[in-house]
Simulated assay, not measured.
Amino acid sequence: MSRESHAPANPYSGAPAPANPYSGAPAPANPYSGAPAPGFDTYQAAGYPPGAPGYPPGGYGYGYPPAPRTNSLALASLILSLVGVASCITAPIGAILGHIAQKQIRETGESGEGFAKAGIIVGWIITAFMVLAILFYVVIIVWAILGTTAAATSAP
């Protein structure tokens, strides 16, 4: 018995031998590679003659509309009200500017309503603290004057 008779049968015996990759012959095109076949124009639409005029390429669209401008009085109102924390003089000016800015914003449609409202709130709160502090100092001074005068008159 020879060894050849025990070898399994080759199911591909009728198929041609695979091509030698080093032979220099071009390999067949892979239909799944995504590359176009030779002579196929990827930019040409099917059913239209080559070079047919078309629409120009699409642009980037209109984009976003510009943001509305911020009212400058509203910004000045907030800044003066915040500076009023240190100076106490600019706080009522900032509050008044905030009211004017709100009127302008309603008429023109500008942005900055939050700045104006914050300027009004901070400005009037700082103004109220300033008025309370002035009243406190006046009361202390009057009390000191009256206390000194009363002590001087009751002395034996």
Rank of each mutant, 00 (worst) to 15 (best):
G24Q: 02
G123I: 11
T148F: 08
F129K: 05
R106T: 15
P36T: 09
P68E: 10
A152P: 06
A25V: 10
A95N: 02
A19I: 11
S33T: 02
A86N: 04
A86K: 08
Y137K: 15
P31V: 03
P50H: 06
W143T: 14
A144G: 14
I96S: 10
I125C: 14
A25L: 07
G94K: 03
L146V: 15
T90M: 06
A144M: 08
Q102S: 13
A52G: 05
N10S: 08
S77A: 07
S72T: 13
I134N: 11
K117N: 09
N30P: 00
P16Q: 06
P66F: 02
K103L: 15
A151T: 12
Q104D: 08
S13Y: 09
I134C: 07
E4F: 07
L97P: 01
L78S: 03
I79S: 09
W124T: 14
G94R: 02
C88Q: 12
P8V: 13
I96W: 09
T148L: 15
P31L: 03
L75R: 08
T149N: 14
I105C: 13
K117V: 12
P38V: 09
A151E: 07
G84L: 00
S154K: 07
A74W: 01
T149S: 12
A91F: 02
I120N: 00
K103M: 15
P65S: 10
A144F: 10
I79K: 12
F136R: 15
R106L: 15
Y43G: 08
I126H: 01
G51W: 01
I96N: 12
R3D: 04
I96M: 13
L78D: 01
P56C: 09
L78N: 01
G39K: 00
R69K: 05
C88I: 08
Y60H: 05
L75Q: 13
P53Y: 04
A155P: 08
D41C: 08
A151G: 09
P156C: 06
I79F: 06
L80K: 04
P28Y: 00
I145R: 14
G14R: 13
Y55M: 06
V142F: 10
S81H: 01
G58Y: 00
S72N: 11
F129H: 10
P8K: 11
A67Q: 09
S13A: 15
P57A: 12
A76C: 10
Y48E: 02
P65H: 07
D41L: 05
A86C: 01
G59Y: 02
S2K: 02
T42E: 10
P31H: 06
D41M: 05
